[in-house]
């Protein structure tokens, strides 16, 4: 049974077809890539899956449930968590608080418990804090726990964002260009980081990336989008040899030159 299945997902921005008939199956434990030239609709696909946009047509089945139309926070609670193309941490909050708030979906207590400081509230707060610290330690960020997120260097912020996405204890982790703006050394570290997430937490990962080296090295299966259409799908070797993909990328380079 697939973890995520999209069936003919189509999305329009006004009259513009941003994604058309997107079909994909992701099995639990996979590490899948989504690539394509700029403006191909990759991030739109992520936005559709996480509920930021509502698919115009088609179904998105996650864990045997159609999630089209559900509010994003609920989709997150069900087990899909993500990072963003440009870092979107809560800058003024500490790293620890960022990780804590990301567990919002799991909060059981209500206002009454807070106001009366009932044990239910205290116990859960402790559990949340413990979980957050555990995550930070796991990814060597514990030293920065009390710092405001904006004070961290860029690479660290990327990592915090990934840890934040993991804090919600997701089944499926969506990474939107995690290597953007990183140097080769950092990319190397990132690849190890992503591998560790999968091995230690057993999370299924789906990532968008422009850095072909990263994609080709770690992804088991890759989908290629161009102008909203799926033009290829397969293992890294297949993709590298696919003429459509090469054309699409060359075409883009032409554009960039002109």
């Amino acid at each position: 049974m697939p973890l995520l299945k999209t069936e003919n997902v189509t999305h329009f921005f006004g009259g513009l077809k941003a994604v058309s008939d997107f079909n994909l199956r992701i099995e639990p434990g996979e590490l899948v890539g989504l690539i394509g030239p700029n403006g191909a609709g990759k991030t739109t696909v992520f936005n559709l899956v996480t509920g930021a946009y509502r698919a115009t047509e088609g179904r998105i089945i996650f864990d045997d449930q159609d999630i089209v139309g559900l509010p994003p926070h609920q989709i997150n609670k069900m087990g899909i968590s993500r990072t963003f193309q440009t870092i979107r941490l809560w800058n003024e909050m500490t790293v620890l608080d960022n990780i804590k708030v990301a567990q919002h979906g799991h909060i059981q207590y209500d206002l009454k418990d807070i106001f009366l400081q009932l044990p239910r509230y205290r116990n859960q707060e402790q559990a949340i804090e413990a979980q957050a610290m555990k995550m930070l330690k796991l990814f060597n960020l514990a030293d920065h726990a009390q710092q405001p997120a904006r004070n961290l260097p860029y690479g660290q912020q990327r990592r915090v964002e990934i840890v934040r996405a993991l804090a919600a204890n997701p089944k499926l982790l969506l990474l939107d260009e995690p290597a953007a703006g990183m140097n080769p050394q950092e990319i190397e570290e990132l690849m190890v980081f992503i591998q560790r997430i999968r091995s230690e937490l057993g999370v299924t990962i789906w990532l968008i990336e422009h850095q072909m080296r990263l994609v080709m090295n770690i992804c088991e299966r890759i989908t290629v989008l161009d102008f909203g259409e799926t033009i290829a799908e397969g293992g890294p070797d297949d993709i590298q040899r696919n003429t459509k993909v090469i054309e699409a990328y060359l075409g883009v380079e032409d554009e960039e030159i002109s």
Binding site: P71, H73, W90, V101, A102, H104, G105
Partner: peptide, 28 residues
């Protein structure tokens, strides 16, 4: 107590980035 609870810190998260908050599981 409210603003110091994890629940209440969601309020600050909304101020910082409402869309990201909603996507990260905060019922904005």
């Amino acid at each position: 107590s409210l603003v110091n609870s994890t629940f209440g810190k969601g309020i600050i998260a909304i101020r910082e980035d409402e869309i990201a908050s909603e996507l990260m599981g905060v019922n904005t």
